[in-house]
Design a protein around this nucleic acid. Structure first.
Lengths: 234, 234
DNA sequence: GGAGACTACTTGTCTAGACAAGAATCGGCA
DNA sequence: TGCCGATTCTTGTCTAGACAAGTAGTCTCC
């Protein structure tokens, strides 16, 4: 039996109180000094508990005012986007990638604007279809900024996914993405071996490293063969 | 000009080093005492910086061993699912909800299994179509456990969304969800005023409060009118 | 050579006190 | 009445030191 750490006890107590509705959204919660007196611990300990609850989005704190139960209007959850190769292998399937296009092109107006580079910038462009046990699960249409990954076209994409390679070249980045449902383009339907009107889950992702655009990806998944899932825990 | 807090300076420094590839995934990073010496701050300050980087998933720490750069294979991002009403209003549209069904039913085998209640349990069932400026954007098909929200059917859903009401009744919960692209059912197509084969973004969400199932929702969005988006920042 | 004790180093956590900064309240003064 | 300053309460942060616990390497003794 392990004794639970004091900061965790304070956290657990407050979570439980929030869970039972003791503090409805917006209600003032006990101050640090009150919790110090109640639990007989130092203020740093209480402070850590409260800071972590704040990071988890359960409470809001305002300097000079107090601590309040968070309005839980928005439900935020962490959606983990795993590398497709890992995901396929983890499910016990074999992963194959087929490269349908890998070349250097000048950015069209649309691509240049979306990626955030000047028009006509020279970019790498790859189209790769990923298969799990010979079933096509993703068509990856990607533009890459040569400035960040000069050796991109030399990579053997049947063995390393572009995401994996790019993570190695530019380790930390920010990404914006959107998820939508739409029909594939004619070419995508052909590459994936699906009907022109079959619904697809389309993830568009733009990633930036130290404010330099790295890559713009359009990931098209046949709706019948792919599912995103996630979890939210308070 | 505001002086940056010492713990933030340490954090920023390490982030920058990680960003420039100074510590590839798995590499041993400076110990707390080394950082204490380097920055001339106390160990608690360094500890806080490292703990936060750990929470952000940028480093891994092992007691007795050291701190290591995290393998950035998985990219996790927080996807904020806002209340639909808020989202529509925030975009400057008017929100209308039309209730097409609101009654008590016995759980079918499929629903009972998915929600995690015994078969034939009596559940509330609502079907509500949400409109932004008279354009249908979501068909919400929801089952609710009466144990958690006895007054559910009395709520005026043209004024309060089910999510909003349920958050008030059962403030803290966990959710699992999946996102897929598929064609709507015949009834959903009719209610949304779209074609039977139009692609839809479908979110299935099951929520649980203190291990009691609360609600199972199937949220169907016409692909052409709805988009999820999110952001990832290290 | 092998086993166990010892040591050095790591992270994990807590304490008691300190100062700063933001915000609300109350009193006094014009 | 209206404004301004002092007081008090809040959170935000830092410090110097302490002990615990996990790990790895070394040293000694059998």
């Amino acid at each position: 039996m392990v004794a639970i750490a004091p900061f965790a006890r304070v956290k657990q107590f407050l979570k439980r109180e929030l869970g039972r509705g003791r503090y409805p959204p917006g209600r003032l919660m006990p101050s640090e000094s009150q919790l110090v007196a109640r639990f007989g611990v130092s203020r740093m300990t209480v402070n850590r508990a409260l800071r972590e609850l704040q990071v988890e989005g359960l409470i809001e704190r305002r300097q000079g005012v107090g601590t309040f139960a968070a309005p839980l209007h928005r439900v935020s959850s962490t959606l983990t986007i795993r590398d497709l190769h890992d995901e396929i292998v983890a499910r016990g399937h074999a992963h194959h990638a087929v490269v349908h296009l890998a070349r250097r092109e000048a950015a069209s107006a649309v691509v240049a604007e979306r990626l955030g580079v000047p028009r006509e910038t020279s970019l790498f462009h790859t189209i790769i279809v990923h298969r799990a046990d010979d079933v096509a699960v993703q068509c990856e249409d990607r533009y890459v900024n040569p400035v960040c990954a000069p050796g991109y076209l030399e990579v053997d994409f049947t063995r390393i996914t572009p995401t994996h390679y790019l993570l190695g070249v530019a380790p930390l980045w920010e990404a914006q993405y959107s998820i939508e449902a739409a029909a594939p383009t004619a070419r995508e339907a052909r590459l994936l071996g699906i009907g022109r009107r079959d619904p697809c889950l389309i993830v568009m992702r733009r990633t930036v490293s130290r404010s330099v655009p790295i890559t713009l990806a359009r990931l098209v998944h046949p709706g019948s063969r792919y599912l995103l899932h996630g979890e939210f825990k308070p």
